[in-house]
Design a protein around this nucleic acid. Structure first.
Lengths: 251, 251
DNA sequence: CGGGCCCTTGAATTCTCTCAAACAATGTGG
DNA sequence: CCACATTGTTTGAGAGAATTCAAGGGCCCG
C-alpha cells in the first residue's frame, strides 16, 4: 500500500473551509485565519486503505483531516496490531512526529480522505507570533491524551461488552459532532477486525460481542460498517458519560 | 485521604533546582529561568497515599513534581481502577485540567512527594511571551500521548508476561533518567495491586506473572517494591525498545 | 466463475478471574 | 512487650472469559 498517493489536487481555501462553519469548532480571528491560510501549503487526497503516516519514518508531515475517516495504530514485530484512536475531520495528525522527529505510530485511511498539508518550518513562527494557536496546539495534544486515558481505562478495566459499547458510543459522538452523518445514515465505516484491534480482543470474540449488542437493538452491523441505533443505550451499557465540550479548536 | 495536605513549606529556588543540573533535562536561558521562577508560586509536600488531584474537580492546580513518585488513574463507578501512567521528578501534572476545566483523572502520591506549584493565571503570559516554553508544554503533552500509545499497545496486545516486563522496564528507564536511584538501590515503590491496576490484570494473576519474572532472575520483589535485576532482559521479553530521547524539556 | 475479503458459528484449548485461605511484615493500643 | 488489626503477598482450585482452530457462507469484482 503506497503511502501518500495523491488522488487529486483541487484546493479548498481556508476562508471557505467547510469545517469552519460547524458550530463544533471555534472561530478564528482574521489574523489567525490569515496565518493558517499561509501555513497550509497544499491539499492531499488519498484512497481508503492508504497509509498516511508510517511508524518509524522521519520528518513526517503535519496534516489536518478535511474529510474522511482514518485510524492511528501501532504494531508489534509479529504483526499484532493495536488501534489507538480514530481520526475524523478537524483532527490534527503528525504532531508527535513533527515535534519529536520520528513517528511512533502509523495512520491509515478508512475511507477516502482529504488532508490539509502544513509547512512544518512555519511552526516556529506560529509559536512566536500566534500564541492563541500555540495554545490550541497544546489543547489538541491534551485532548488526545484525554481520549487515550479513557481508551486505556476501557481496555484495561471494562468487560468485552462494555468495551464494545463504549467504542461505538465514542465514535458516534465524535462523528456526530463533526457532522459526518449527513441526513439519516449513521454508519461507521469500520470492519470487525478494526473493532477487535481497538478493543484488544480477537476477531471471533469481537463478533460474538457485537452480536449481543445487535440482539439488544443497540446497533446494527451493516456491510463493512456499523449503524448506531441507540447511542444512549450504548453509553449506559458502557458506563461512559461522554465528552461535554461544546466547541474545540482546530487548525 | 485528604487532598493537598501540606507537610512543610521550605522552598527551593528555581535557580537552585536540583533537577536542572541533571543532563536529562534541557537547559533554560536566563530569561526563561527568570519567568519560571516567577511562575512558581510555592511548594507543596505531601505524604505517600495523598490524592494530589481528584477526578471531577474543577480549576485544579498546575504542578511539577520535584521529588517522589506518584501515579495517574481513572476509576469506574463500581471501583475498578486503571492506572494510566506514573509521575516522577520533572513531570508536569494538571495540564489537562488547567486547559480544559475539569480533571478527568486523579493523581496519587506513591511516596512522599514535593511539588512546585504554578500560577495558572500566568499561563497566558507564558504563551504570549515565552514561545519556547509554550513549545515545551506542547512537547510535554505530546510525549505523554506517546507513552499512553505504548501503554495501550501493551494492554491491548501484549501477553501478561510481556506486559509486566514492559511496565517494569519502562519504569526503570524513566526512573534512571531522573536519577531516582541514588547509589545501588534500584527499587520501584509500588505494590502488586498497582501493577495489576496498570496492566489490567487481577492481583492474583499479577502475582503469578511477577513470580515468573522473578524465577527468570529479571526482577526481585522486595518489600512493597520491585528491584530490577536485568532491564535488558525485561526489554527483550516485552519486545519494547525503549525511548531514545537524550534530553527533554521541563518547567 | 473464481478469488478475496468479511462475517458467522462451533468446539476445544488456554488464559485469567474469583473465591478462599493462609502467611509475613508492620503498626497500634493496652 | 504482647495481642490484635491491617496491609501486602502467596497459593490452590474451580469457574468463567477469551483464544485458536476450523469451516462455511455471502458478497463484490475482475
Amino acid at each position: 500500500m503506497a503511502a501518500l498517493k495523491v488522488r487529486n489536487s483541487k484546493q479548498t481555501p481556508c476562508e471557505q473551509c467547510p469545517l469552519r462553519g460547524l458550530e463544533h469548532f471555534r472561530e478564528f480571528t482574521a489574523e489567525e485565519l490569515n496565518f493558517v491560510s499561509n501555513f497550509k501549503t497544499g491539499e492531499l487526497a488519498v484512497d481508503a486503505g492508504t497509509t498516511i503516516l508510517l511508524e518509524g519514518s522521519h520528518s513526517p508531515h503535519l496534516f489536518t483531516v478535511l474529510s474522511g475517516w482514518g485510524f492511528r495504530y501501532k504494531m508489534l514485530d509479529d504483526g499484532r496490531r493495536q488501534i489507538l484512536n480514530y481520526v475524523m475531520p478537524g483532527d490534527l495528525i503528525g504532531l508527535q512526529g513533527t515535534l519529536m522527529g520520528e513517528m511512533q505510530h502509523s495512520v491509515e485511511a478508512l475511507s477516502p480522505v482529504t488532508l490539509c498539508v502544513f509547512e512544518r518550518e512555519k511552526l516556529g513562527t506560529l509559536y512566536r507570533n500566534y500564541p492563541s494557536l500555540a495554545y490550541d496546539l497544546t489543547w489538541i495534544a491534551a485532548q488526545e491524551e484525554r481520549i487515550l486515558d479513557e481508551n486505556l481505562l476501557s481496555i484495561g478495566r471494562r468487560s468485552a461488552l462494555e468495551r464494545a459499547a463504549y467504542l461505538l458510543a465514542f465514535l458516534y459522538q465524535r462523528a456526530k459532532a463533526t457532522n459526518l452523518f449527513k441526513g439519516e445514515r449513521v454508519s461507521i465505516p469500520i470492519t470487525q477486525q478494526h473493532v477487535a484491534d481497538t478493543l484488544g480482543l480477537s476477531i471471533v470474540h469481537t463478533n460474538k460481542t457485537l452480536k449481543k449488542l445487535s440482539e439488544r437493538r443497540l446497533i446494527r452491523w451493516a456491510d463493512r460498517g456499523c449503524d448506531i441505533l441507540d447511542d444512549e443505550g450504548l453509553m449506559q451499557m458502557s458506563g461512559w458519560e461522554g465528552y461535554s465540550e461544546k466547541t474545540r479548536p482546530f487548525i
